[in-house]
Write a protein that binds this DNA or RNA. Sequence first.
DNA 1: GTATGAAATTTCAAGGTTGAAATATTGCGG
DNA 2: CCGCAATATTTCAACCTTGAAATTTCATAC
Lengths: 158, 158
Amino acid sequence: MVSAPLDTIERPNAAKERLRLWIRLLRASRLIESELRERLKRDFDSTLPRFDVLAALYRQPDGMLMSDLSRFLLVSNGNVTGIVERLVKDGLVSRAAREGDRRTSIVKLTAAGERRFTEMAAAHEAWIEEFLGDVSLGDAERLSATLKTFRSNWEDGH
Amino acid sequence: MVSAPLDTIERPNAAKERLRLWIRLLRASRLIESELRERLKRDFDSTLPRFDVLAALYRQPDGMLMSDLSRFLLVSNGNVTGIVERLVKDGLVSRAAREGDRRTSIVKLTAAGERRFTEMAAAHEAWIEEFLGDVSLGDAERLSATLKTFRSNWEDGH
DNA sequence: GTATGAAATTTCAAGGTTGAAATATTGCGG
DNA sequence: CCGCAATATTTCAACCTTGAAATTTCATAC
């Protein structure tokens, strides 16, 4: 007599519990995102997508291609075009031609962009601490680990 | 000699851990959202915001005002106007005048909308189970509880 | 060298999102 | 009744987002 696979042994409401988890996950991230959006606008006249691009570029001082940004940020190519366009107009980001391949150009933070980003990043960290400060270190570690596992499994399968 | 407040006793990387938690939370919900969006489009020629509105109305057979929807879904008033407009055009939702107050109208699912929603909801549940099936029941409960606590604290303070 | 397919990017239409301003209606104090 | 603040909603400009089509450049087989 073989045993049933693990998932049929789970209490029958496991699926319901995971559905509830998704709904709460979504609501939590929307709450935080909307508060972040509001404050980025208020304090820096900026937006979350712009902040994301600056953060990505900050980690790569040698610059990134448009497609690098798109892949890293999980947004479409066409989307990146518009956001970078506006950041260039604001003087926070530069695009330099790349010899050897005229299809691409390297996107980098300007000095102003780097200054700007460090200000925004400091505020951002403080805000997150304000929002999530009540989550204990232990809970944060557990949650974080679960989400990491989820994402690894996801990306292996897709 | 008094002791320092609790949060200064925590290991100094607690803030970093919570920041990491936020980043993973955001990435996880974006991954899932984007997969859901794609499938709603593919299988039902619909969108996540439309699904959200249908779900809200399904829970309230007597109908909701525009402002009820806006409050419940955490999106702006103007936003709801457009989404409901399109759902009406699709015949999934109706708006009925309300005597006694000509500013408002009651938004309800039509019979077609109800049929449509139950199809979508079944697919939605299966998809979430597909995405999150690897999260154990225990983890799901813990995570869910943490997120619920976070939201309660948040909403008390804001 | 030249077609031709691959790769990187841009353009575009449709929709979602916000916050602020504009409209319409109600309710109420005087 | 009349004015006027409060309430419910719509309109609007600006931005974000996607997926598909168009464009440009590269690389390679012939």
